[in-house]
Design a protein around this nucleic acid. Sequence first.
DNA 1: TTATCATTGCGTAAATCTTACACATAAAAA
DNA 2: TTTTTATGTGTAAGATTTACGCAATGATAA
Lengths: 254, 254
Amino acid sequence: MERSLKEHFEQTLQEVSIDCAIFGFHAGELKILLLRWKGTDGWSLPGGRIYKEESTDDAANRILKERTGLTDIFLQQYYTFGNANRLTHLSKQDLMELLELALGKDYFHDKINRRVVSIGYFALVEFDQVQATADWYTDEFRWWEIPDVPKLLFDHNEMVVRALHALRQQIRNQPVGYNLLPEKFTMPELQRLYETILDKQFDRRNFQKLLVSYDILEKLDEKRTGGANKSPFLYRFNKSKYEKAMIDGVSFAM
Amino acid sequence: MERSLKEHFEQTLQEVSIDCAIFGFHAGELKILLLRWKGTDGWSLPGGRIYKEESTDDAANRILKERTGLTDIFLQQYYTFGNANRLTHLSKQDLMELLELALGKDYFHDKINRRVVSIGYFALVEFDQVQATADWYTDEFRWWEIPDVPKLLFDHNEMVVRALHALRQQIRNQPVGYNLLPEKFTMPELQRLYETILDKQFDRRNFQKLLVSYDILEKLDEKRTGGANKSPFLYRFNKSKYEKAMIDGVSFAM
DNA sequence: TTATCATTGCGTAAATCTTACACATAAAAA
DNA sequence: TTTTTATGTGTAAGATTTACGCAATGATAA
């Protein structure tokens, strides 16, 4: 009995990885950071493994730091992917060729035949702060606008869809923007962020009223000049009030 | 390079398990199914491992079937637990004694020193339909009312808290009741279910109006007699409308 | 220099949704 | 037969959300 238990456990050992959907906001568009696998045209989300002494949250933060240089940013687990066939949504042939190119012959046999569980995290980062770097597997990174995201490796398209869904869920119950916008921003910029994430237009007067009602914004005396119109005021988040609102929750019901 | 990659992967192999918070509703109370480990007084959530050919969802459904005899019930992943120390929230000493009792000497060394990632699922079941059975590790099962849940093994108290939170989130965006109530039920019974899950009282007239507005209920000609009062009408869910509402979502904002 | 254009700041009315509450009625118990 | 308890139904007040008007400002074009 004890022996069979032990064998049973060894049989059910898994590869567990973490994949991060890293969202940024730039030029009025929501973007996601993708990596291209070495010598191929296959793209995927940044990911990695969990070390022995790490929690999954620690591993996700480490991976994020390795890819973007950033620490202390918003990062949240949203779903764990464990379809038995999640590595083979491409044809096995195609996948083998890609992985062989990227990793050398030795590896792909294991990779394809072992099941992999992946914990999905999503992160919100300030676009301009990111110093992206590729990893072992990859030799290029690029920010993609959400509608332009190509067909990705493995089940990563599903990951993007679910991460986006989680982000949209998030925005309706907690404030969003602290990690996505620069320190100072205008109300139209904040609105554009919400509109982009939710893919929906809002009345600017009602939007302003609602966001001001959260009591997390400080209106500054400065204005943003340069546009061919009346200069909008700059705002910034009050960090402690913002954090309180993250805990207490808000209701964005537009 | 290829070799070190391979070694790296072997080093990061994980145990992945699934733990299920199984909620039932009986005698006006929300209850959760717990198992007692063999020869000990340590309780835990029902759980198990993932076989090679299974998806995590399949594994969760299988575990649920093994413990309750039920198939086709509401089951949803809510969080993946991966704190490095999640098996040692009891003192190592205490845990070793418990596991040795339950499993024999051979096992516990592995169990304690290897990190385990557990995918949390919660299920909603019709209490009276459940034929509960214990598993390898355990020799007793019992339904516990939520406030009475004792200190559990591992990090399972945190799991219960998070599962309950996920259930409460759920109920505010999708209808609940199909799997928790018998086929026919009265409006006060449905209200009691909502009140128990959310731990909050509602005005019965407003509750009825809101639930009726979802257009998922069929009012029957029958009444429930026996109470020392006016007999309430029986209702049942219209399955197709209920399923549509599960997809489209509802807003329970009381 | 001045008029025009695009967009912002600010405010109010209408519509909708949520909450509070009242009275008649039925089934069992006294 | 009367009392007790809880149900069935409806309406008004309050709060929130949505729709929309108009004056003001900064850049640009005339």
